[in-house]
C-alpha cells in the first residue's frame, strides 16, 4: 500500500500550491474552512485530523459571488465585452465524504439534465479532489443513513489516516496521474486501516421519499416549521444547497453580471414582479426546503440532496434538527 508520512503533508501542499491553488481544511481565527494554502500566511493550522471544518468547500467550485460577464451600456447600446471563465487549476485537499458527495450533487445539477453550466464546468474540469476518509463520525453526523460511505469519499485520491502516515489510494485516472506527480513523497508500507467507529445516529432512509410524496399538505409541516425564523443560515452553511440569484452591478456605462448564493428561506426568492408569490408563508418556504432536499431532488436525480454532514444542526439558531425531522416524517403514520 502507498502511504505518505504525515510530516510530508506540508511539503506536499507547498509543492502543489506552486502550480495550483490548493484548498486545505484549516482553522482561521474563530472560523475553519477550506482556505487557499498560499493565502494562509504564518500559522497554518491544518485541520485534517478534525472531524471536518465549519465552512464546507462549496465556495471553491461555486463561489458565493461569481462574476459571469462584463456589460457595457450606452444610448441604445448593450454589449458583452468579456465572459469570465475561471480556468485556474485547483486542488481540494482533504475533503470528507459528506462534502465530496455534495460536489457530486453539484455535478448532477450543473452538468446534466440538458444544460451544462459553463462557469461551473470550467472550474470543475480543472479541479482535483483529494478525499480524506472519515473513521470517527461526529455527534451530528448521519452520512451513512443518507447512503454515503464515510471511508470512500467521491474523490480522485483518498487518503486514510493510519496513525503517523496517511494511506494513499488513487481512485480515478486523474487521481493516478496526480499520484505519479507526487510519487517521490510516497512510500510502500504494509498497514491495516482503522475500523469505522459507530455513528451516534443511524436510521433507515428507505421509504422516506415515498412517504413524503403523500405529505405535501400534511399538518405536520406547520408544527415543524413553527420555530423556523427563515434566516438563511442553514442554506448558506449547507454543502449541497446550490440555489443562486443573478444580479448586476453597474457604474455609469460599465458593469458586470454576477451570480450569488441565494436562499429559498427568503420571501424575495419567489416573489414575482407582478406582486404574486407562490410561497408567501414561512411555512411554505420551510416545507419547500426540506422537500427539495429529501424528496424532489431524489425524484430528479435519484438520491437525496442531504449528505448528512450535520452542519445545519449545529448552526440553526432555533434548534431545528434535520435528523429529528426525518424521524418525525418516518413516524407520521403512527401519529395520524
Amino acid at each position: 500500500m502507498q502511504v505518505i508520512d504525515k510530516n510530508k503533508i506540508v511539503p506536499l501542499l507547498d509543492r502543489l500550491s506552486k502550480q495550483s491553488e490548493v484548498f486545505v481544511p484549516t482553522v482561521k481565527g474563530s472560523e475553519s474552512g477550506f482556505y487557499s494554502w498560499n493565502s494562509l500566511n504564518g500559522a497554518k493550522e491544518i485541520a485534517l485530523e478534525a472531524l471536518n471544518v465549519y465552512h464546507s468547500p462549496k465556495n471553491v467550485l461555486f463561489p458565493q459571488t461569481e462574476r459571469m460577464y462584463s456589460i457595457e451600456q450606452g444610448k441604445q447600446v448593450f454589449s458583452i465585452p468579456d465572459t469570465f471563465q475561471d480556468e485556474k487549476s485547483r486542488i481540494i485537499f482533504g475533503i470528507r465524504a459528506c462534502d465530496a458527495k455534495a460536489i457530486t450533487c453539484f455535478d448532477d445539477v450543473f452538468l446534466t439534465h440538458g444544460y451544462e453550466d459553463s462557469f461551473y464546468a470550467t472550474r470543475r474540469k480543472n479541479t482535483i479532489i483529494i478525499g480524506n476518509a472519515c473513521y470517527q463520525p461526529g455527534a451530528n453526523c448521519f452520512c451513512s443513513s443518507m447512503g454515503i460511505n464515510p471511508v470512500q469519499p467521491d474523490a480522485d485520491v483518498v487518503i486514510h489516516d493510519a496513525g503517523t502516515v496517511y494511506a494513499w489510494e488513487a481512485i480515478t485516472v486523474t487521481g493516478q496521474q496526480f499520484t505519479e506527480q507526487v510519487q517521490d513523497l510516497l512510500e510502500e508500507k504494509d498497514l491495516g486501516l482503522p475500523q469505522l467507529k459507530p455513528f451516534s445516529t443511524e436510521f433507515d432512509y428507505d421509504g422516506v421519499v415515498e412517504k413524503l410524496q403523500g405529505m405535501f399538505d400534511h399538518e405536520i409541516w406547520h408544527e415543524l416549521a413553527e420555530p423556523c425564523m427563515n434566516c438563511g443560515t442553514c442554506t448558506y452553511m449547507c454543502p449541497s444547497c446550490h440555489c443562486f440569484d443573478i444580479q448586476v452591478k453597474i457604474w455609469g456605462d460599465k458593469g458586470y453580471r454576477f451570480r450569488c448564493w441565494d436562499s429559498c428561506m427568503y420571501t424575495e426568492y419567489t416573489a414575482e414582479a407582478g406582486g404574486g408569490n407562490p410561497r408567501p408563508d414561512s411555512q411554505d418556504r420551510f416545507r419547500n426546503r426540506f422537500l427539495h432536499k429529501l424528496e424532489f431532488f431524489t425524484e430528479r436525480y435519484d438520491y437525496p440532496l442531504c449528505t448528512g454532514c450535520g452542519r445545519c444542526i449545529s448552526v440553526c439558531p432555533n434548534g431545528i434538527n434535520i435528523i429529528d425531522i426525518i424521524k418525525r416524517i418516518k413516524e407520521v403514520d403512527k401519529i395520524v
Binding site: 475553519s32 472531524l51 461526529g138 455527534a139 451530528n140 453526523c141 449545529s314 434548534g319
Partner: peptide, 15 residues
C-alpha cells in the same frame, strides 16, 4: 448559549 455548545460538540474544527 446552545449554539456554542452545539459547535463544541459538533466536532467541527474551531477554537
Amino acid at each position: 448559549d446552545p449554539l456554542k455548545i452545539a459547535k463544541n460538540q459538533s466536532g467541527l474544527a474551531c477554537p
